[in-house]
Amino acid sequence: MATLEVAGLRQIYGGRTVLSLETLAVEPGARLALVGPNGAGKSTLLRLLAFLESPAAGTISLEGHPVAGGAARRAARRRVTLVEQRPYLFRGTVAGNVAFGLRAAGLRDPAVEQRVRAALEKLQLQALALRDARQLSEGEIQRVAVARALATEPVALLLDEPASSADRAAQQAMFSALAEEQSRRPLTVVFASHMLEDAYRWADRLLALHQGLPSPVTPENLFRVDLPGGATMQRVAVGPLRIDVVSDRMGPATLAIAPDEIVLSAAPLQSSARNVFRGRIVRLAEHGAEMRVTIDAGIELVAIITRRSFDEMGLAVGGEVYASFKSVAVKVF
């Protein structure tokens, strides 16, 4: 039975539909990543899954039971916990923060203390237990918030952009704590990220959202491939193209090419880039000083270039360009 299941879900803010999701089922122990640009509806979906707001239409079921009405949502919130993008720590100590949910669940002192200690240990925060929550770094705040959420032993943990503010070490601590927890019990984890790298490194499933809708195309140059293996330098088939990558892996994998690693030129480049493909511009989108150029080169590639270069090159939809990128720019997951 799915931990969380969505049917015909719709959310509307001020007359505008911000999320529309027909179905979604997240199984126990799953690691689902929600990816997409800002404003895609990721945070809205997380708040709905956390039962913090009620949908304009549709139902969300928790462990097979549809959750509707204030009382049911209140009960469901005891089983699902959201860690916000910039988590809020209450005034007081770190330990006091971690104890909050336990006291809300009606636990008393010896039990609370023991669970707080265990939760802090999971995120290597024992040393900070008595520190003032207002005097922590961003990475520490993030970890305390995760410890506070895990202390209540939720069946599902939702994280909004867990990697955006925290430093690398804090992220590492957080993800390994979650993995550790999942090895102990079937904790369901759903997290939103605009960083695909994190999503691919950690998730076992990905839901791409775009303007509130599930997006059929994976965003930004992601390709499922079958690595031939045998050498560090490999040539992989992606549609009709052959892409050179550096990886010692073999078998099914995902390739990701960061859009800002792709160089566009009017003629084939004489450079160290091992991957050069000719294509036709099919879409253009403006983002401030940047242009997002989608090229059909047999597969669709997205490149981000500056507005200035775009103007100087005189690019337009239908025009022909060469896309080049180094084999080391291709990330293999």
Partner: peptide
């Protein structure tokens, strides 16, 4: 965020108001 945080940690109406 105070209200949302208290709610998501399972607090009822009273405890949330207190927070």
């Amino acid at each position: 965020r105070v209200r949302r945080t208290a709610l998501t940690l399972g607090a009822g109406t009273l405890r949330t108001a207190w927070a």
